[in-house]
Design a protein around this nucleic acid. Structure first.
Lengths: 219, 219
DNA sequence: TTTTATTTTTAGACAAGACTAAAATAAATC
DNA sequence: GATTTATTTTAGTCTTGTCTAAAAATAAAA
């Protein structure tokens, strides 16, 4: 249906639309896709002709409803494959992105339907990002940074803000992953550091960590 | 490492080399890949420059050792994914080819190592074709056509010769699939038809069926 | 051994998707 | 408001992989 390049552009534009309001600039797309602005102009003009986005010269791009649908479907596939790689093939959550970037372009509705079922229709990927359902509907999560949680409150780890390999490896060492339940036992005012409890273990974490970890607070 | 087109050419040439002896002709490749001979000439010249095959003008092509290694690796991936689709996602064996054609090009050694392990290192794909191991070694099967089996001999169904959707569906209806044990109870001389036993059921099959079903006779 | 037919290759063109260099537009500064 | 700076677009080129049409080599037939 759509080429690999087209799908990647739509996906990138979708993500950029959610990072800041308004139209997405040519330069922003170029930077996020590690390509040149002139190449981006070429492509968004083609995508505009195909009605996958709305484009005005010098004014940036904005996904159309159909364009958004395509983007969300690619993201759904990406995240489902990530679950597969981590849950079934025992990859670490910091190893799966590149492979999922390839798998997300496999064309077969039936495949994704069955994969979803096989995985138990997960709502979140291994990084805690929500997986859109068949109709593109995302489970809305009220996720906060761990640093925003008050003393004695609990939360479930649902993702990370900055996903550098070093940070993910730190979390791995501390046995923190998606679904890990965290309770804030104490919070230091002057530097934002915390004492937290995971299972029966209690330990200290710095503000830098707490500001990069998303948790979902229990209603 | 290699492009999608390159991998497909190498795979096609590998299969053609096993269908008949000698160099593989330009026309044969073109036909098997549903493309034009001139396109094939272009590509095999490029592949020859990359030392993936040996090519002499007007004399056809022949895979080099490295070319064969690449082809076998693609076939390994294709067949492992077919096992995954049938065993884990419950696809029918006549639905998986197209999807596996896409999945076979996913680039990640680690992925295939883990997929193989996850599937229990299968020796055969759902069509009964052998799956090359990590080093490209194929389990040698002494497979015969069912029509070649003598009365009172037994065999295990390992594959089909012509895999048209109609034929595969016929087999499905008769509950014949890979691993099915078949015993020849009687053989009619003049038309080659047979009475066979599968489990506790006995039934009649025509020569046309018997000539399209591969079985492995027990040593 | 010519002639004819078939196969294969070359030459030239095209689409997708990228690039560089230069021009056009918009934003920022004086 | 004029000018400098940054962003975006155009024009032209390149690579990959394909095609058509025509030429060249091989194989088959007379």
């Amino acid at each position: 249906m759509f080429t690999l390049a087209e799908e990647n552009y739509l996906k990138a534009i979708f993500h950029l639309e959610h990072e800041s309001a308004g139209d997405v600039s040519t330069n922003a797309i170029a930077e996020s896709m590690d390509t040149k602005p002139s190449s981006v102009t070429d492509m968004i003009q083609k995508l505009a002709e195909k009605k996958l986005l709305v484009y005005k010269r010098y004014k940036g791009a904005q996904l159309s409803d159909t364009g958004r649908k395509v983007a969300i479907n690619v993201i759904r596939k990406h995240r489902l494959w990530e679950v597969f790689l981590v849950e079934k093939l025992n990859f670490h959550w910091d190893e799966v992105h590149e492979i999922a970037e390839q798998l997300e372009h496999i064309q077969s509705e039936e495949l994704i339907t069955r994969l979803d079922k096989f995985l138990g229709s997960p709502d979140f990927d291994p990084h805690g990002d929500p997986i859109p359902d068949k109709h593109g509907v995302l489970k809305r999560t009220e996720k906060k940074l761990l640093s925003e949680i008050e003393k004695n409150q609990k939360g479930v780890c649902v993702g990370v803000k900055e996903s550098s390999a070093e940070f993910l490896q730190y979390l791995d060492k501390k046995k923190i992953s998606i679904g890990t339940k965290i309770k804030v036992l104490g919070k230091e005012f002057f530097d934002g550091s915390m004492i937290i409890q995971i299972g029966n273990d209690q330990f200290f974490i710095s503000n830098k960590i707490a500001e990069n970890l998303y948790v979902q607070t229990q209603e």
